[in-house]
Amino acid sequence: MAAAAERLPGEGSRSRLGRVGRALGRGPLHLFLLLMALFWLTPTFGLLITSFRSSAASAESGWWTVFTEPRQLTLEPYKEVLANESLVQALFNTLYITVPASLLVVLIAALAAYAFAWIDFKGREPLFLLIVALLIVPLQMALLPVSRLFGNLGIFGTIPAAVFFHIAFGLPFAIFLLRNFFIGIPTELLEAARIDGASELGIFTRIVLPLGMPAIASLLIFQFLWTWNDLLVALTFTASDAIPITVAIQQELRTFGANLDIIAPAAFLSMIVPLIVFFAFQRYFVQGLLAGSVK
C-alpha cells in the first residue's frame, strides 16, 4: 500500500499505457494462436456435427450449414448405431480387448522390470539390451507367423488372440519404462526390507509397486489408448463377432458417403472413452510420453 502511495503521479498511467502498447504489439501473436487453435478444433468439431446429421443432409450440404439451419440436427444416427447389434457388440469387444491387454501388460512388465532393476542374475545386461532392441521391431514382422501359430492353437479370430498379441508387443516398451523408473527407487529401502527378511515378492508388492505408481499409471493409460485405438492388430487377428469398433467402422468405409450417418456417430462413440481418459489423466499421459518417446 505504502509503495503505491509513494508512486509519482503519472507513473501509473504510463505503465498502463506500456501494458496497452505491449498488448497491441502482441495482437498478431494472439490472433495467430487463436486461428491455429480454431484450425485444430475444426476437424473434430466438423465430425461431431456430421454425426448428428442424416446421410441425405451430408450429401447435400456441408456440416457448417447447421449454423443457419439448426433443424438438420437429429439424434437419429446415434439411435440407429445404438440399435445396431453388431456395432454395439464391437464397442464392447474393444473394451474386452483393451482392459485385459492393458492390465496384463502392466503386471507382466512390472515383474520383469523389477527383476531387471533389482535382482542380480547372469545375463541381465544383454537381456535388457535385447528388450531395448525390440522396442522398435515393426509388428508387421510378426503378423504372418503369429496368425499361423494362433491358427494351430485354435484361437485365431478371437478376442484372446488380439489380447495376447497386444501384450507381447506392448511388453518391450513397458519393461523399458518401468525398469527405468524402478531403478530410481532408493536402494536403502529395498536393502532394509531384505534385512527384515521380506521375500522378493513381498518387496515387489509392498515397496516397488506403490512407489512405482506414477510410472505404472502412465503406462496403463498409454497402453489403454494404444490398444483401444488399434486397427492393424485387430484387423489381422479378430474376425466376425470378435471384431472391435475400429474394424467394424473400417468395414463400412467402402461406401463412405452413403454410410456416413453410421460411420460418423460410430467414430465419435469410439472416441469418447479415449477422450475421457485423456482429459482425466492427461498428466500421466504426458509423463508416459516424455519418459520414452521411442515406440
Partner: peptide, 25 residues
C-alpha cells in the same frame, strides 16, 4: 495450457477416427 491441450487432443484418438474426420474435411 489451453492451446497445448487443443493441439494435443488429436493424439488421444485413433488413426481410424482421424482418417474419418479428414475424409469429411
Amino acid at each position: 495450457t489451453a492451446i497445448k491441450i487443443i493441439v494435443f487432443m488429436p493424439m488421444a484418438i485413433s488413426f481410424l477416427a482421424t482418417g474419418v474426420i479428414w475424409r469429411v474435411m
